[in-house]
């Protein structure tokens, strides 16, 4: 879906609430339901249509825990940082992947929007530690090298798909 289509849909959502300022939270909930996150463009459009400051919209969006302001990648990679995984050196895996994906600061998603890297408290698969999941599929006994290898495979697969299309 192109950016224009998304914005058109956002406009429809805002209109469906009659552009009422007090519907801001409900509007953002609807947008997030459809697009999994609130993009900058979407929030700017919402602010514009409701006639409120964009800082206000951003302020409300960042107050509530359920709103995500970041697009998630196609693959969501979670590295377990529970006790068992931690002692089996899950941190180097996380660090290695961050470096591989070129993530800096608070950035969690690679610039090609392919991967989102997160940590998870405990996946309850301590026997397989250190573990990571890719879109909820568990990958056991990882090393920094094997983790990167896995992501490269996924990337290659996506590349092939793309080439076919």
């Amino acid at each position: 879906m192109g950016k224009q289509d998304v914005l058109k849909r956002v406009e429809e959502i805002v209109d469906s609430y009659g552009c009422r300022r007090e519907a801001l939270i409900a509007i953002m909930q609807d947008i997030q339901n459809e697009y999994k996150y609130l993009s900058t463009e979407a929030l700017e459009l919402v602010a514009n249509k409701l006639g409120v400051g964009v800082a206000k919209v951003y302020s409300v969006a960042t107050f509530y825990e359920n709103f995500s302001l970041e697009a998630k990648g196609k693959y969501i990679v979670k590295v377990c940082c529970g006790t068992a995984c931690h002692v089996r050196k899950s941190q180097p895996i996380y660090d290695g992947l961050r470096e591989y994906l070129g993530l800096t600061g608070k950035q969690k998603t690679s610039s090609d929007a392919m991967f989102t890297l997160e940590t998870v408290a405990c996946l309850g698969a301590c026997g397989l530690s250190p573990v990571m999941t890719v879109n909820d599929e568990v990958h056991p006994k990882m090393t920094p090298e094997s983790a990167i290898e896995l992501l490269e495979e996924l990337r290659a697969k996506e590349g092939a798909n793309h080439a076919e299309a």
Binding site: R21, E22, A23, I25, A26, M28, Q29, S59, V60, N66
Partner: peptide, 26 residues
């Protein structure tokens, strides 16, 4: 019906009404 968006403090009366009004639940 108003759905909350994930803020415990909205159980407080004035935060709850602020949230219904589309504001930060403070």
């Amino acid at each position: 019906i108003n759905r909350g968006a994930g803020a415990f403090v909205c159980g407080e009366g004035s935060a709850l009404t602020a949230s219904i009004e589309g504001k930060r639940g403070m």
